[in-house]
């Protein structure tokens, strides 16, 4: 009988064990909630952006975004631009002529506008409503020129998905989370 009472826990022991495990469970739940809240807070305070120094303009931004029209657009660092007469971000590698004719342009959607400044300088501006973020101009500019054209996530369009599908498909790892109060990674002027 006494042996039986040693093996079977009493009511008090059951209560203590329940309290102990209950306290442990509560501690775990609180910790988990804190981590979740912190992660959620982090996500809310950061946004997706492309590091232009790592981006290789592969074209994935144009097709992997969950939006029908990608949130990634081409941006122009005017301070880096050479305002070239023959811009290889604007003209195809073998332009038939040096003018704004569609057949001479590199951009498949005609999203870059070329306007005369003074001889021999021209200004290039991006029409974001036409740009689909394919990065073709970025490649042309960075291969031959100063790399003034580069891709950025436009935050007036981006849904800031928790798991960005472009980030997952980015072959160079150029997608990163940046603080929401500094949402763009703009190109620097120091070109030497």
């Amino acid at each position: 009988m006494s042996k039986h009472s040693e093996q079977t826990p009493g009511r008090r022991q059951i209560l203590i064990a329940a309290l102990r495990y209950g306290a442990l469970g509560l501690l775990g739940a609180t910790g988990g909630a804190a981590v979740f809240a912190r992660k959620k807070n982090n996500t809310q305070n950061t946004v997706w952006q492309i590091d232009p120094e790592i981006c290789i303009a592969c074209g994935n931004c144009a097709t992997y975004c969950v939006l029908e029209e990608s949130a990634v657009k081409c941006m122009h660092a005017y301070a880096v631009c050479g305002y070239c007469r023959i811009c290889f971000g604007f003209f195809g590698p073998e332009p038939a002529d040096i003018n704004e004719g569609a057949e001479n342009q590199l951009c498949p959607t005609g999203a870059i506008k070329r306007s005369f400044v003074e001889d021999p300088y021209y200004e290039y501006t991006i029409d974001e409503s036409l740009c689909m973020g394919c990065g073709k101009c970025v490649k042309g500019c960075s291969t031959f020129g100063n790399g003034a054209l580069y891709l950025q996530v436009r935050h007036d369009r981006c849904l800031n998905c928790n798991e960005c599908s472009i980030a997952a498909a980015c072959p160079s790892g150029a997608f990163k989370r940046v603080p929401a109060d500094k949402p763009y990674l703009l190109k620097r002027v120091d070109h030497v």
């Binding site: 592969c58 074209g59 097709t63 992997y64 590199l106």
Partner: peptide, 19 residues
């Protein structure tokens, strides 16, 4: 389903920069 982008962008030839 290509989650890593290894299969490329799927864009047409007119979007490819090739010199």
């Amino acid at each position: 389903f290509d989650t890593t982008g290894k299969k490329g962008s799927g864009l047409g030839q007119e979007f490819i920069y090739d010199v």
